[in-house]
Design a protein around this nucleic acid. Structure first.
Lengths: 219, 219
DNA sequence: ATTATCTATAGATCTATAGATAATGC
DNA sequence: ATTATCTATAGATCTATAGATAATGC
């Protein structure tokens, strides 16, 4: 390990951060914090690192948040399940028209690309999952299930079952599976950086096909 | 947060740990460390906690390992992919007899129960994944793929494809999916403690059915 | 004059080491 | 006599606070 540099050049004199309104600064701190928490987790991220990433002093961090945990919480709360609402509406329409293939492909693609785009956030969510108690995870899950994707997919599967198109089984569990499969692949590929050896669009097609094949009654 | 107890009773006088051979002590430290690393990760686990869990002093920890990271590494190396070898041999036989259903159920069951049994270890592996660079994750994965489940499942799928039973597509990716689905459900249910609302055996059946259905050509 | 920022530092850990103490096996 | 353990502590962080300094808007 490299010893800490003792004779730091006085050259990099601390330039005072541009003055922002309290609420803007909070948002900016949170935004840059997600990158750090996503990379190293709560315990692995120091308040010094948070300060540097935000371009302010440690004192400023604590002016806006009482503790490091508060930054963590704010980062995690602030970015949980935002704009799924509109997306679900689009999916409803495809569902009505019975376009299973197209619908599933969209869901899968959204997951895969979402994990790629918001890598830091999703890595942080994994850290949050690992850091929470089982009880907290359960509650967190109930909150996510309330609205959003899992509920929609569950309803969709139930309808297709009644129409005799999909296999039987508890819709909620089948939805877990239909979402879980792309999530797992996205986690490995996008969050852990494991090269699966195929490009994203091919992966989407393969995932969608496997899901749909699995859900459809084999005639 | 509770203030640190100042007046600790002299009652709980440190009882000197039973003397073990160096190699036994190392193993015992590793074993108890997995629980801590699995719960709180590398950064969230202090050397004091490692010492307490092993029932020795901090000095003793450092007598056996040069750094905390060394304990982490040893814990993670020591328990990676051990007895899959025999299990794979059993599976080979089922594969030869063309018993797809039975084979997939066994694989799924092994994953689900394995995650339940070795919860700490698998939680720790998740922490390791998150803490590693993409490059390190790739190397780690290549090492795991060399032997063991992924390679076997990949071969098995390739054979069934040639026999015209399974859908087309890169066997390695299809294997990722067939293993990834149960892994994702096991992660949520066993590692995060999310209640999926079905018992394990039902879950195994549902997972196996979806996998097999997904892989088989729909006639 | 109010609000945001920085500087300096206290106090609490946390990792790691050195040297003392106790147990084991020859 | 050798090996394992413990005690005490140094030095390095790390979190959080108090008070000084600078920018903004009235």
């Amino acid at each position: 390990m490299p010893k800490k540099m003792k004779n730091r050049r006085p050259a990099d004199k601390k330039t005072r951060a541009r003055r922002l309104s309290a609420s803007d600064r909070k948002l900016q701190i949170i935004e840059s914090a997600i990158g750090l928490f996503g990379k190293d987790g709560l315990k692995g991220t120091t308040t010094k690192a948070l300060a540097d990433a935000a371009g302010v002093s440690e004192g400023t961090i604590f002016k806006h948040f009482p503790t490091k945990e508060a930054v963590y919480m704010a980062a995690f709360e602030g970015r949980t399940g935002q704009d799924t609402r509109k997306f679900v509406l689009e999916l409803e329409q495809l569902a009505d028209k019975g376009q299973d293939e197209e619908l599933i492909q969209r869901v899968v693609r959204a997951i895969l690309f979402g994990y790629g785009r918001d890598r830091d956030l999703h890595r942080m969510l994994l850290y949050v999952r690992l850091g929470q108690s089982d009880q907290e995870n359960q509650e967190f899950n109930n909150r996510l299930d309330q609205t959003g994707m899992p509920a929609f997919v569950s309803r969709y599967i139930a309808v297709r079952q009644q129409q005799g198109v999909f296999v039987s089984g508890p819709p909620a569990i089948l939805a877990e599976m239909m979402l879980g499969l792309p999530i797992q692949l996205a986690t490995r590929s996008k969050l852990f950086g494991i090269d699966l050896g195929v490009d994203d669009e091919t992966l989407v097609e393969l995932l969608a096909r496997l899901c749909l094949n699995g859900l459809r009654k084999s005639s």
